[in-house]
């Protein structure tokens, strides 16, 4: 019995020593797995892969709920951030646009400071009914404005003041049917008479023109200076179409206004005329049908 026990002890000790040797020889000093490990791992590989795929699927399924909550929070934060960024971009664009318009006004004012005494004003309201085409300015009699003063923009004629309060002024726009202005064709110096509004934002008309009148589409129409309100030489618009009247004796012309009345934001009021000098468009500036100020 003792012998058997001793044999067991020896066997176990030898086994332990053998195992320790085996462990040492298969430690990290070895650059690869031991031979027997490779087939075993290869055998397990498909199962490992399958279980891993299933595990990933389950993880993805449960992760969806967690991710969904996080994504919604992130989405909300991004929306807020985007809204703030959009607001600032809009503000920047507004300022840029305002800067451009004011720059055009300043240029015009500087160019014509010897000819006119100008007051700059901002459009703060517009008549919303269909009967009148008027706008309200943020300056009035306190700034030296009075009725019948001419209102202009860098692109051309806007209208005339028809009512003032200390801090506001109402301007009857050129496009109003009640508005009429003495005009002439810039190229031919032909003075056919009056240009009046049609009630539409983008159309003026010249009525009862002589059948033989020298007027053609594309010609510039400027103020004639007849009457005491508007100085001569201010841009009114461009002749768009000339049509004979049904009586065969006269014809009419439609004029596209130089000013874009839908985008009117800043204007200048001619408070007084310093010299009898015909204002002209700034050098190199061509008339275009773009919104006012954008032709700069």
């Amino acid at each position: 019995m003792k012998r058997k026990g001793a044999l067991w002890a020896i066997a176990v000790t030898l086994a332990v020593i053998l195992l320790l040797y085996l462990m040492q020889s298969t430690g990290w000093q070895q650059s690869d797995m031991v031979g027997a490990g490779k087939p075993l791992r290869e055998l397990a590989w498909p199962v490992q892969k399958a279980v891993s795929v299933i595990g990933d699927g389950l993880g993805g399924f449960f992760g969806y709920f967690k991710d969904n909550r996080l994504l919604r929070q992130e989405n909300q934060a991004l929306k807020e951030s985007l809204a703030a960024a959009e607001y600032w971009i809009q503000q920047m664009q507004e300022l840029q646009e305002e800067n451009r318009r004011l720059g055009a006004l300043l240029d015009y004012k500087t160019t014509h400071s010897r000819t006119f005494a100008l007051v700059t004003a901002q459009v703060i309201g517009r008549d919303t009914d269909n009967w009148n085409q008027t706008v309200i300015l943020d300056k009035g009699s306190a700034s030296g404005l009075a009725c019948e003063m001419a209102v202009i923009a860098p692109a051309g004629m806007v209208g005339r003041i028809v009512a003032v309060t200390p801090h506001t002024a109402e301007v009857l726009l050129l496009i109003d049917r009640e508005s009429a202005i003495g005009a002439r064709v810039s190229e031919t110096r032909f003075s056919p008479g009056m240009v009046s509004g049609t009630g539409q934002d983008d159309l003026l008309e010249m009525l009862r023109l002589d059948h033989e009148a020298e007027i053609l589409p594309g010609q510039k129409v400027i103020t004639s200076g007849y009457g005491s309100i508007f100085p001569k030489g201010l841009m009114v618009g461009v002749v768009e179409e000339v049509v004979p009247d049904s009586n065969g004796l006269t014809k009419r012309a439609t004029v596209r206004p130089a000013v874009d009345f839908r985008r009117l934001e800043e204007v200048m009021i001619i408070r007084s005329i310093n010299a009898d000098e015909e204002p002209v468009l700034p050098e190199g500036q061509e008339f275009s049908m773009q919104p006012e100020g954008s032709q700069k």
């Binding site: 430690g27 490990g37 791992r41």
Partner: peptide, 8 residues
């Protein structure tokens, strides 16, 4: 054998 290191 499965993990292939420190056999034993």
């Amino acid at each position: 054998l499965f993990f292939g290191r420190f056999i034993g």
